[in-house]
């Protein structure tokens, strides 16, 4: 028909094209918001943001443990700390406040917990370090924070963490704090099941613990599969400063 009509049609096509492109951008940004969650974890890992590192919540591989060399030239003051979230009615404290430790020296430390209530509880300890940057230099072989901990009414227990400090720790750092915050997760968990698992783990019978594997479990939904092989000690980037 007229030229005008053609122009109009062209305009409409242009509008549609702009709209489609913008919508694609929009969907991308919405996805990006959720992608920021794992990106944030990686950022924490690399920069030590907020004292988070998956080295704090996952065990190192045996082959890396075999290669650990002790650095006798310096000692690091390692301080232990314990907090209760929301007044969890549990007595929770480290059995040793401070220790001097050589980087590479593998040692076991313990915390004492006591359930002062008449109820069975399931607890989860969340680790954190200070200064924040040191998080990725602490290596754990075993830790009570890897698992949910059952604690029967009135029960008193000793929880242990076996760890060493990686020798790539920057020279200017001579003290660090390892802190655990205890959360009561009884409602979200199953005391019986957790107890059975714990017994099996301790007696080593027929127990395959997926969370002790190299594929780390992270409890943030939607990112389980995103974890990379991060345990390779030798490849450590050492960007803590």
């Amino acid at each position: 028909m007229s030229i005008k009509n053609k122009q109009e049609e062209q305009k409409q096509r242009g509008i549609r094209r702009t709209l489609i492109k913008s919508l694609i951008g929009l969907v991308f940004m919405f996805g990006f918001a959720f992608a920021l969650v794992p990106i944030y974890d990686v950022l924490c890992e690399v920069t030590g943001l907020n004292g988070r590192s998956q080295f704090l919540t996952n065990p190192v591989k045996q082959k890396n443990i075999d290669k650990v060399v002790v650095d006798y030239s310096r000692k690091i003051k390692l301080q232990f700390d314990a907090s209760n979230n929301k007044h969890v009615p549990i007595e929770f404290e480290p059995n040793q406040r401070n220790t001097l430790i050589n980087p590479g020296d593998i040692k076991t430390f313990t915390y004492r917990v006591k359930n002062t209530t008449g109820k069975d509880m399931v607890l989860q300890a969340i680790p954190s370090t200070s200064p924040n940057e040191v998080a990725s230099y602490l290596r754990k072989i075993e830790c009570f924070c890897f698992n949910q901990q059952p604690l029967a009414a009135g029960e008193e227990a000793e929880l242990s963490v076996r760890l060493y400090i990686h020798s790539s720790l920057p020279k200017e750092i001579n003290a660090m704090t390892l802190s655990y915050t205890l959360y009561d997760i009884t409602e979200a968990s199953d005391f019986q099941k957790i107890s059975v698992e714990k017994n099996a783990r301790e007696n080593d019978i027929d127990y395959i613990a997926p969370e002790h594997d190299d594929d780390h479990e992270h409890s943030i939904p939607g990112q389980e599969s995103k974890q990379e092989e991060h345990n390779d000690d030798d490849d450590h980037h050492g960007t803590g400063t």
Partner: peptide, 19 residues
């Protein structure tokens, strides 16, 4: 029951501020 911002479930309240 997710824990994006709750440390007990592996989340982080500081991440809320970043987002």
């Amino acid at each position: 029951g997710t824990s994006f911002f709750n440390a007990a479930g592996g989340g982080d309240p500081v991440m809320f501020q970043h987002l």
